[in-house]
Amino acid sequence: MTPQLADVHILVADDQPDVARTLCRPIERAGALLHFVNSGTAALETATGRPYDLMIVDLKMPPDDWGGLWLLDRLKAEGVRTPALVLSGEGSKEQTIRATRLGAADWVDKDDAGTELLDRCAELHSKCQAQALEEAIGRLPTPLAAHFDRYRRATNVDRQVSAGLATLEAVLRFAAVVGLATTPPAPLAGVAAAQLARPSMGTWLTVCTRLGSLAGAGDEFTRLLACLIPRGAVQRVQDLVNLRNGIAHGRTTPTAAHADQLDGLLRRFGARAAAFWRGDIGVATTMTYDGSAFQADFDRLRGTGGPIASTLATAEPPRPARCSCCHTPECR
C-alpha cells in the first residue's frame, strides 16, 4: 500500500525543532519528505527558493512575536501560493483568523497536532491534487495551459496516456526553451546540434538536466524545472520518456497503471508550478520612450482565456531572449 503522503515535499517552520520533529513523525512515516527551518525569515528564503507541496507554519515564532503571520504576509506579497497549514496555540484565535485571511488553507491547534496533523495534511494535499489541473489551466503560461486543458478532457486510457505524454513533452520543451534563453552560453554535454534540429522528448529532458547542472543556470528555469524534477527524481521522468518511445515503436501498450503514473506526475507539477513559478510570457505590441523610461505594451499569455493586455515600465529597453548555445536572438 502506498503511504498517504509518499514523496510529498513539506516545509515545516517552527522555532521549537524538537517539538516540530516529534509532531511530524507520523507524517514522515507516511512517506513525506520534510525540511525543517526555525524562523519565518528562514522559511521565506526556503519557500521562495524551491517548490514545496505543503507548508506547516507555527504562528508564534521569530521574527517578532507572530512570525508565522509575517511569513504568510510576505509569501502573499511574493506571489507564492504554496498551501499552508498553520499551528495555533492557546490565546491565538485572532491570529488564526488573520492567518486564514492571509491565505492559510487550514489550521490545527498545536495541542492536538500529535493526533490530527497527519490526517489534516493528507486531506489538504488530496484537495490540492484534485484541483491541480484546473490551477494549471488557469495560471500557467498559455502554451502549457492549453496542453493541460486537452489532457483534462481525455476520456479513456489510450487518450489519457497520449495526451499526458504530449503534455509532459510540452513541459520539458517549455522548460528547455526558458533555460536556453536565460542561461549564459556553455557546452551541454551529450547534446549534439543535430539533435536540436529535430528534438525528441528525450532530447528535451537531456537539455533540461544538462542546463540544470550548470552553476549559472537561469533562476526562472531552475525554479520551473524543480516543479517537475525535484532533486534526485529525474528517473521518474525518464521512465515516462521510455514509455513514450515504447508506445511509438509498438513495443508497449498503454495501461491504466501508465495513465495513473502520468496523472500523478502532471498533477504534482501543475500544483507546484501554479503555486510557485512566477514567470510570465508575452507578445510585445508597442514601446514608447519619454526621455527617462521605456513603456512596453504587451499581451500576457496566461491560462486559456486569451491574451491579457499588460504594460511594463523600465529604465532599460526590454531585450529579446537570447539562446544559450550562440547568444543571439535569432537562434531561438
Rank of each mutant, 00 (worst) to 15 (best):
residue 3 P to G: 06
residue 230 P to H: 08
residue 27 I to L: 02
residue 98 R to N: 14
residue 216 G to L: 15
residue 78 E to F: 09
residue 136 A to T: 03
residue 225 L to A: 12
residue 3 P to C: 04
residue 19 V to R: 13
residue 230 P to Y: 05
residue 35 H to G: 05
residue 256 A to S: 08
residue 305 G to Q: 06
residue 310 S to M: 13
residue 140 L to E: 02
residue 63 P to H: 01
residue 160 Q to P: 07
residue 239 D to S: 04
residue 170 A to C: 09
residue 250 G to Q: 05
residue 306 G to E: 01
residue 62 P to D: 03
residue 41 T to Y: 06
residue 163 A to P: 12
residue 65 D to E: 14
residue 185 P to T: 07
residue 72 L to V: 03
residue 64 D to H: 10
residue 80 V to H: 08
residue 71 L to V: 00
residue 21 R to Q: 15
residue 247 I to C: 01
residue 105 A to Y: 06
residue 298 F to V: 12
residue 326 C to N: 10
residue 317 P to H: 11
residue 93 K to G: 11
residue 157 V to I: 06
residue 18 D to A: 09
residue 332 R to S: 15
residue 10 I to G: 04
residue 192 A to T: 11
residue 298 F to I: 10
residue 146 A to L: 15
residue 278 R to K: 09
residue 300 R to C: 09
residue 70 W to P: 03
residue 104 A to C: 00
residue 198 R to D: 13
residue 71 L to F: 00
residue 255 T to Y: 00
residue 47 A to R: 01
residue 250 G to V: 02
residue 89 G to L: 08
residue 247 I to R: 02
residue 77 A to N: 08
residue 234 V to H: 13
residue 191 V to P: 03
residue 315 A to T: 15
residue 262 L to Q: 14
residue 106 D to R: 09
residue 15 D to K: 02
residue 222 T to M: 14
residue 263 D to H: 11
residue 183 T to K: 08
residue 242 N to Y: 05
residue 86 V to S: 00
residue 317 P to C: 08
residue 116 E to R: 11
residue 295 Q to E: 15
residue 22 T to E: 12
residue 31 G to W: 10
residue 264 G to A: 03
residue 192 A to N: 09
residue 63 P to Y: 00
residue 250 G to D: 06
residue 108 V to W: 01
residue 235 Q to R: 14
residue 4 Q to D: 15
residue 330 E to T: 15
residue 159 R to C: 04
residue 250 G to T: 03
residue 180 L to Y: 01
residue 32 A to V: 06
residue 84 A to V: 01
residue 170 A to Q: 12
residue 293 A to D: 11
residue 239 D to E: 08
residue 149 D to M: 11
residue 284 A to K: 13
